Amino acid sequence: MKIFYAVQATGNGHISRAMTLMPHLQKWGTVDVFLSGNNSHLAAQLPVRFRSRGISLYYNNTGGLNYSKIAFQRNPLALMKEIKELPVGQYDLVINDFDFLTSVACRLQRVPSVHFGHQASFRYTETPRPAQRQWHGELLLKDYVQATHHIGLHFKKYHPSIFGAIIKEEILQAAPSEQSHITVYLPALSDQTLLRLLSPVTDQFFEIFSKETRSLTRKGNLLFRPIEQQAFNRSLIHCSGIICGAGFETPAEALQLGKKILAIPIKGQYEQYCNAAALDQLGVMTISSTESVQTQHIRRWLDQGKTLHLDYSQSIQEALEYLFSVATTRQPSAPIIGQPVCAP
């Protein structure tokens, strides 16, 4: 089986998930990756056959989507030329992790596809939303990618077509401990803001992963670290809790490890508001947005926050078995035989 796997290259989450999934997908056939976008800082250790600037998602200084930059980043004629040249029709299966170009190419060429990833979960009304919905946020999450099937990933199985998070093997196999530090990953906030927010909590040591810091910097009870994946994994595995945004991958890894979480959605990011609503339902402490967080919130969480453990160890097997059971070839009436090339 020939598999076309489109991966959105905005941020690191999509690429990280693709790297985790790749050895499992390759049991079902030959996989060619289409990397679409140019707004990621993670090296894609993937079998990339096609690349494009794609349609990257950009954010403004407050963390919200920069719609004008998104809309005017590409020449429409050049973009349409790329779309028409995508060889999706040459593959037995097209898997799309939130890429607009692949979505349009499949529609133009009448090729079935599977939208697979966290954003696909928002096609279903059962997926948690915040009390105040945003029409433009809903439009982006639900209609940015069109597909024959939508298979979502989320914190819980809110719908039969939604599965648990895809977790890196390093996290799944880890032996977590509870050391004295709190891990902090809030790239939307400046180092100065984090210093002002956390330094008054003098009885707690914070290990902060910062996009501004280039070397280890100690400031009282705060240690600022450059963002580096292995160092972050170690810090998360052995922390007593984590303060992070309300994205998907980092809170899911913390849930897998049974860590106490304080989730703070980035102001203006509707997807994070949705994730925060889901985490709140699970019993995870959340704050309304990065703009409203105060030192008193940190103290209350340290005193009252609770740990929660969810097991995502079977998510890959369950999600891929379902994907291959519902996916279709170019002829919608001819289902793909759900058998891997070698035994999983």
Rank of each mutant, 00 (worst) to 15 (best):
K211P: 11
F224Y: 14
L189R: 03
L195A: 07
A188I: 13
L222P: 09
L236N: 05
S199H: 09
L236A: 03
L172A: 04
F232N: 12
C239L: 02
E170M: 02
T183M: 15
D203L: 12
Q230I: 10
S177M: 01
G220P: 09
R196A: 15
D203K: 12
L223W: 06
N233R: 00
L194H: 04
S215P: 00
F205D: 06
Q204Y: 01
T193D: 03
E207P: 01
P226T: 07
G220A: 08
S199A: 12
Y185G: 12
L195G: 00
R225N: 15
K219M: 14
H238A: 06
S190T: 13
S240P: 01
Q179E: 15
T202K: 14
L216D: 04
Q179R: 14
S215T: 08
E170N: 12
S199T: 10
P176K: 03
L186M: 15
E170L: 03
Q173M: 08
L222A: 09
S235D: 07
H238P: 04
N221F: 13
E212K: 04
I227H: 07
L186D: 11
A175D: 11
I182G: 04
S199W: 02
V201Y: 06
A231F: 08
C239W: 03
I227Q: 11
R214K: 14
P187Q: 13
Q173F: 06
V184H: 06
E212F: 05
G220K: 14
T193M: 03
S210H: 12
F224Q: 04
A175W: 01
T193S: 04
S177V: 00
R214E: 13
S210Y: 11
A188S: 15
R218A: 11
E178N: 11
Q204C: 15
Q192W: 01
L186V: 07
L194A: 06
Q230S: 14
S190L: 06
F206M: 03
L223R: 11
Q192T: 05
Q192K: 09
C239F: 01
C239R: 00
K211T: 14
D203Q: 13
I237G: 00
L198Y: 07
T193F: 13
E207W: 09
F205Y: 13
P200R: 07
L216G: 10
D191N: 15
H181D: 01
F206N: 06
T202E: 14
I208F: 12
T217Q: 11
R214G: 10
V184C: 05
K211N: 10
L172G: 02
D191I: 02
A174R: 02
F206H: 06
V184S: 06
E170F: 03
S240F: 01
L222C: 14
S180I: 10
L222H: 03
Q229A: 13
E212T: 05
L195H: 05
E207D: 15
S177W: 01
